[in-house]
């Protein structure tokens, strides 16, 4: 299981927590009105995921099977509290923008799912790496969806970057187009659902195309051999 390459592929693509496992959809759909909100929540989730995976992996041999779930939840809750306090201290505006969805990271099934399915059965280093990759996969989707919705709905990208990166980023906002009548649907919840559906569809389409290409190559090989024999 300690094959890092396959762990990376699982987290980012094959078993992406947002696109394939469809976990943590509530924060995913709720906060992705802008790239920065998505990135902020993605990084927070990733930090919690890495922390909880490491801790769960460390204690996996001491926690009895019967009480493992409460222990996991407490570990996750502690990390969420730490992250929440850190965000409150250093990125206060982002903290306000994300609101309830920071404490709600506790209930993100992707995290307890990884604790149960991977961290509790593996050594510390692979568990940490799995946390990084699953978190990165989740963040990637949050950023993509946030980007789609922000461009369509407001015509900008990276607006409010200073909330996350501090005053240096105050002029990072890219204006793709300026409009007095933004496409509000993209910013509103339906835009999140439709955008998420389109992302999943795109992922499946790419997968289908890849498998089709592989089978085609195999077919070509057989045909060549048949003609050679006949």
């Amino acid at each position: 299981m300690a094959n890092y390459q396959s762990l990376a592929a699982e987290g980012m693509w094959n078993n992406n927590p947002a696109l394939v496992q469809l976990l943590g959809l509530c924060p995913l759909l709720a906060v992705t009105a802008t790239v920065i909100n998505g990135l902020g929540l993605g990084l927070a989730t990733m930090a919690v995921l890495v922390g909880s995976n490491i801790t769960v992996s460390l204690v996996r041999n001491f926690v009895r099977n019967e009480i493992r779930i409460p222990v996991f939840v407490m570990v996750i809750a502690s990390f969420v509290t730490i992250i929440q306090l850190l965000m409150n201290a250093f990125t206060y505006e982002l903290y306000l923008a994300l609101g309830i969805f920071i404490p709600l990271i506790v209930t993100n099934c992707a995290i307890i799912g990884r604790a149960e399915a991977f961290a509790s059965k593996n050594k510390v280093l692979p568990a940490a790496f799995d946390g990084v990759m699953m978190g990165a996969g989740f963040t990637l989707v949050l950023v993509l969806l946030g980007g789609m919705r922000e461009v369509l709905g407001a015509g900008t990208l990276l607006s409010g970057a200073d909330r996350l990166f501090g005053p240096i980023a105050s002029n990072w906002t890219l204006t793709i187009f300026a409009t007095e009548q933004p496409f509000l649907l993209a910013i509103l919840p339906p835009g999140a659902f439709i955008g998420m559906g389109l992302l999943i569809a795109a992922k499946n389409a790419i997968d289908n195309r890849l498998t089709a290409r592989q089978t085609k190559q195999k077919k070509q090989v057989t045909r060549i051999r048949v003609t050679a024999e006949s």
């Binding site: 009548q181 496409f183 509000l184 649907l185 993209a186 509103l188 339906p190």
Partner: peptide, 9 residues
């Protein structure tokens, strides 16, 4: 969709 997106217009 149009009514929700562009209520004024």
């Amino acid at each position: 969709i149009l009514l929700v997106s562009f209520p004024a217009a």
